[in-house]
Design a protein around this nucleic acid. Sequence first.
DNA 1: CGTCTAATTGAAGCATCTCAACATGCGTGG
DNA 2: CCACGCATGTTGAGATGCTTCAATTAGACG
Lengths: 257, 257
Amino acid sequence: MLSSLVRRLEQFGPLSEAEQQALRALPLRLRDVAARRDIVPEGDQPKDVSLIVEGFACRYKLLGDGRRRILAFLIPGDICDLQALLLRRMDHGVAALNRNRIATVPHELLLDIIRRHPRIALAVWCDTMRDAATCRQWLANMGRSPAYARIAHLLCEIWSRLQAVGLTNGDAYELPVTQTDIGDAMGLSVVHVNRTLQQLRADGLISFRSNVVMVLDWPRLQAAAEFDPAYLQLNAVPPFFLKSRTRRSAVSQVAAQ
Amino acid sequence: MLSSLVRRLEQFGPLSEAEQQALRALPLRLRDVAARRDIVPEGDQPKDVSLIVEGFACRYKLLGDGRRRILAFLIPGDICDLQALLLRRMDHGVAALNRNRIATVPHELLLDIIRRHPRIALAVWCDTMRDAATCRQWLANMGRSPAYARIAHLLCEIWSRLQAVGLTNGDAYELPVTQTDIGDAMGLSVVHVNRTLQQLRADGLISFRSNVVMVLDWPRLQAAAEFDPAYLQLNAVPPFFLKSRTRRSAVSQVAAQ
DNA sequence: CGTCTAATTGAAGCATCTCAACATGCGTGG
DNA sequence: CCACGCATGTTGAGATGCTTCAATTAGACG
């Protein structure tokens, strides 16, 4: 649980002892959220940051006519409502897709750590940036590529992200979403999602039964999706980590003033 | 130019003397970019951050078949490539729509300021978050709302953002984009953009000639777009600014250790 | 074993696309 | 100042990907 936050942030590079200490000293609170319930409601002004320890979730917006638009899928290790840390109000909601275990940290404490440890601030900031990059990728896929490629791309993305946190089982992974969810996410009707999935199955690219996706033909799936995992920045090592020593001494100098 | 950066960051609340000093001490470099040229190419790894002082630009991705997908429009005051500050590689390009005046700051220096002045870090971080929020709004509009509402929404958004930086002229504003650009942004063909614009004109909602948009009927345009400017966070005052005093002393304490 | 949700199928309709032509405006060079 | 050329805007018509409506089947669960 706690370690998942550390692991998350260390994805970009090792944290110092002091930094790890600070994170481990955080009084994490755990809570469970039932499937299909809100983790963070739309328009909420949470006072804590919520991290998914276990389970799948989605960001969504409700449209005027009552329909729901899914904006992103969240997996273990993802932060739900970082946005509210600085902008206060959530412009969208986050809902659990299956049973979720959520860890929460009060804004106060996180802001404090961020002030004391600039590198942690930058690591968390990175999270916002990767979130934005993923959103842009979805935006690019939307509207311009046909349903077949869109869904293929989604399946590629989720496999890659799950793989990065060790939640794949070879070419297979759990994906607890209905076809309606996929439709809400890709901007397609359920009916069309259904037919497109059948096409993907018929073409031998995937299988998808009882919430388990299995990639049967990676090269062709990736080609159909025009998938390039670069945007996910899964193994990026930002410059400030490479210069950890000098940076830290620079910080010390400032502190010593 | 420099003041535009300060103004930008002060949008969230006043900066201290020391913070303003630090920003004003930045050796800004100015450069001009011709219309239709890249400000930051896709895949680039810039060593500076670019801020638009004057002109309009767009974020874009090139698709496999050579088409271009526009992901966002940028206006004076917007930062083009903040992403590369931490993630290094640009997952998308930024191109000028008309002649642009760009101010650049070396990453090194900006990172240094960020380390010395946590509140500036948070203010810039906010920028990433608003960018992401806008992207999510585009994503929500895409695919689920018809062309008419999508374009109406775009026109509302740009007016609001321009208004916030004082670049509107009453209900009118400059928008140096072609119908092809709008199509690339909204995921529509030029032909359909053309017909939809005609519809908007015929309905008396807008006029749009020679790169000047005039909103003729705000209530109906806003209704057609289901536009709610909240997501733009144009006047958000994040919590950390409200507690500026205590925060700063907290930082000093850490520094004094 | 009934009930509910999710998946599947068929058929008609429509928003939007593509193709193709034509009109308009504007900058440039003669 | 005109004539040309090129980018942009406009229009028509046929094609299609996707939607909506409506009904049926399959699967999960108490």
